[in-house]
Every structure is written in C-alpha cells, then in structure tokens.
Amino acid sequence: MKGDKTTYPIKVYRWLFVFLFGLISLASAQEANQKKSEQTQIILQVEGLSCPFCAYGLEKKLKAIDGVKKTDIKLNNGIVKLYVRPNVVIDSLTLKKKIDEAGFTLKKFNRKQLNIKNKINKKNH
C-alpha cells in the first residue's frame, strides 16, 4: 500500500509534465503561426530582369531594405516577391530607388497581408 502511495504522485507529476510541455509547444506554435499570419508580402513586377547573374544585385539591394526578410525572384515572368516583417511599411519610392540602383525598372507593385491561419481554417471547413 505504501508503495502505491509513493508511485501515485510520480505518475501525476509525469502527466503534469506532459501536459505542461504540450501546452508550451502549442503556445509557441500559435505564436509562430501568428507571426506568419502577420507577415506582409509585396509582389513586384520588374522589367529588364533576364539573367540569374544580374538578379544577384537586385536580391542584395532589396534585402538591404529594412524589414525585408526574404526575396523570391522569378525570372521567367519578372516577378519578385518580398516577405516583410510585421508592422514595417515600405513605400513605393524606396522600392523604385533600390530597383533603379540594381539597374532594373519597377513596373508595378502589389502589397498584401498574408494570413496563413485563415487559409488553414478555410481549408478545414
């Protein structure tokens, strides 16, 4: 009986540890998801972009803009996607200047708020 009494609290602690670990993991996953959902994507249409070697300069110029986390350059359609940190506003003049400095021409740009969470929810419904 004594043995039972001593093992019972250990099991409780074990389950409590598993529960807390699960809770922390869930919270951090939610936080990461929240950050992703707040990420802004800027889509640029760039003219004159024809070779990968020259695109290196464009990538470096755009990545130097404060708030830009990642770039995705598609040469075959001249589309450049910028992934920007939440709450960072990049105006069209800054983008135009940086693209000019890289030796290309900005034709148009489009900004949109990525909301991955909503997309997942929609898929689930």
Binding site: Q45, E47, G48, N76, N77, G78, G103, T105, K107
Partner: peptide
Amino acid sequence: FRHDKIGAS
C-alpha cells in the same frame, strides 16, 4: 540608354 521590358533589355 536602357529600355527595359519584361525579361528583356
């Protein structure tokens, strides 16, 4: 002189 188009210059 530089004249850019989509994918060309």
